[in-house]
Design a protein around this nucleic acid. Structure first.
Length: 478
RNA sequence: GGCCUUAUCGUCUAACGGUUAGGACAUCGGCUUUUCAAGCCGGUAAUCUGGGUUCAAUUCCCAGUAGGGUCACCA
């Protein structure tokens, strides 16, 4: 009986070819959850074997994103670990060693064709509407591999494969899925198809988590594990995240952006974690707002959905509000400062926002809708906007004049939001509808459809500016 | 085209073969409030189609349909 429980080891292995998008992050997250849920090890490995596509700064960006959301790796290029180095370009000798092993077994051979020659063969197959298989062109004899030509894998046995995936269940593929693929490119770097297997073996990775696009190449990997005589790890493929307006995979081209842009737009890391976890996954109950610690506790990779999930900005915004509501006061203050334009970093504004957020928790909209621009921007408004529902311009103008009168008579030291509120409500209660004064007043001061209440607006603007804006509104109405 | 794979409200999803098919977002309506916003309450809304298996199918099987993935000296 295999009853000894093996320690779970997972890895996130991005290639430094640009910024990380939400799809990458989701994979990282699920991989991380799986390890942490089982008290296992989470490794960060950089797969930089395609030197042509490499983008400078990508690795730092990967660190930055993972740190932002709070994913901590146990082993990685920056912190080292027992299985280093953790950058593939520093492990070239290892791949050569494995390649040599395969050559000795007769399971690898130099590809005698040029890239162009292979291309011609491939095109011919496509024209004839059949699958192109390199192994059908496998030469009978070949030279010793000197490293100038690509080294190809010779599949040991062309057969059907069956395997189990923790998300997709039982999978299988016919022999057509197997081919002699390239292990080492002519530039000396290994291909992903080869070196990730070597690394996973060497690093003791027990669970391989990656995108659904790898389902169809799994037979190739299974074949390689056989050739290497190593027991394959547990495979886990994650369904794709789909674009908001279609069912296409959410890629960089169709709207998926740098994860850090979400940070700049005011999304909390807690939100990103929670939202991404819920794209294609769901706990056994109806709870939806989770911290990362809670997610680790309830996470179960096998509850992952098989079909792709569509990205939803609406739900993301909702979730962000929920997380903002739960922010401790100190954190909330930090967050507000980070979100607010510099010209709004003013004493009186902060409590105002705190107050409004405690009700609506929607600072993103406040910033986005320029709800706070009233402070430094003279409002521009249309006559109709000032008028409340069924009232007319005359009444509105008269009501504003009443307010103006009271405000002008208020002493400077009494001019604060509490007092203004009392005075204005007195006027408001004398009208058939409170909105007849409160609406035009709010609008006169802010010029906005959405804004804080008029008393606070007046307080922040100060007596002089308040009077000037009300006057302006009255003049527009007349 | 070959191979692989998926299918519950508009969207994300729940439902050991027996539920009035549940929740959330969005939407719609109402309430509340100090104008909006926010908040609260409520409504509309789904098992792709056709065959089986079964006393009973969203659930198991087959086919169809529709979608997705993959067929690189990219990962």
């Amino acid at each position: 009986m295999e009853n000894q429980t093996q320690k779970v080891v997972t890895r996130f292995a991005p290639s430094p070819t640009g910024f990380m998008h939400v799809g990458n992050l989701r994979t990282a997250l699920f991989t991380y959850f799986l390890a942490k849920k089982n008290n296992g090890t989470f490794i960060l490995r950089i797969e930089d074997t395609d030197k042509a596509r490499e983008v400078e700064g990508s690795i730092d960006h990967i660190y930055k994103v993972l740190k932002w959301v709070g994913i901590n790796w146990d082993e990685g290029p920056d912190i080292g670990g027992p299985n280093g180095p953790y950058v593939q370009s520093e492990r070239l000798d290892l791949y050569k060693k494995y390649a040599q092993k395969l050559i000795e077994k007769g399971l690898a051979y130099p590809d005698p064709f040029t890239e162009e020659e292979v291309e011609v063969m491939r095109n011919k197959a496509i024209e004839e509407k059949r699958a192109f298989l390199f192994r059908e062109h496998r030469p009978d004899h070949f030279d010793v591999w000197d490293g100038t030509k690509p080294l190809r894998f010779r599949v040991p046995e062309v057969k059907e494969f069956h395997w189990h995936d923790l998300v997709f269940g039982d999978l299988s593929a016919g022999a057509e899925a197997l081919d002699d693929y390239i292990l080492i490119k002519s530039d000396g770097y290994p291909t992903y198809n080869f070196c990730h297997i070597v690394d996973d073996i060497e690093m003791g990775v027990t669970h391989v988590v990656r995108g659904q696009e790898y389902v169809s190449s799994t037979p190739k990997y299974l074949s390689m594990y056989e050739a290497l005589e190593v027991k394959p790890p547990i495979f886990i493929c994650l369904p794709h995240i789909l674009g908001k307006d279609g069912n296409k995979k959410l890629g960089k081209r169709d709207g998926s952006k740098d994860v850090m842009e979400y940070n700049e737009e005011g999304y909390l890391p807690e939100t990103m974690i929670n939202f991404l976890a819920f794209l294609g996954w769901h706990p056994s109950d109806d709870k939806e707002i989770f911290t990362i610690e809670e997610l680790i506790r309830v996470f179960d990779i096998e509850r992952t959905q098989k079909s792709g999930a569509q990205w939803s900005d609406d739900k993301l915004d909702w979730m962000n509000k929920e997380h903002i509501k739960r922010l401790p006061e100190v954190k909330l203050k930090e967050y507000i400062f980070a979100q607010l334009p510099k010209e709004l970093h003013i004493g009186k504004i902060i409590p105002l926002i705190m107050e409004r957020i405690s009700k609506s928790s929607d600072i993103q909209n406040m910033v986005e809708n320029h709800e706070l621009d009233f402070f430094y921007k003279e409002p521009v408004y249309a006559k109709e906007k000032l008028i409340y529902k069924n009232t007319d311009a005359n009444t509105t103008s008269n009501n504003l004049s009443l307010a103006l009168d009271v405000i002008e008579k208020t002493n400077d030291e009494d001019f604060n939001s509490d007092n203004i509120k009392i005075f204005m409500m007195e006027i408001a209660d004398g009208l058939e509808n409170r909105g007849q004064i409160l609406h035009p007043l709010r609008f006169a001061l802010s010029g906005l459809d959405k804004s804080p209440d008029p008393f606070i607006l007046a307080d922040i603007l100060g007596k002089k500016e308040t009077i000037s804006r009300i006057n302006k509104a009255i003049s527009i109405l007349n």
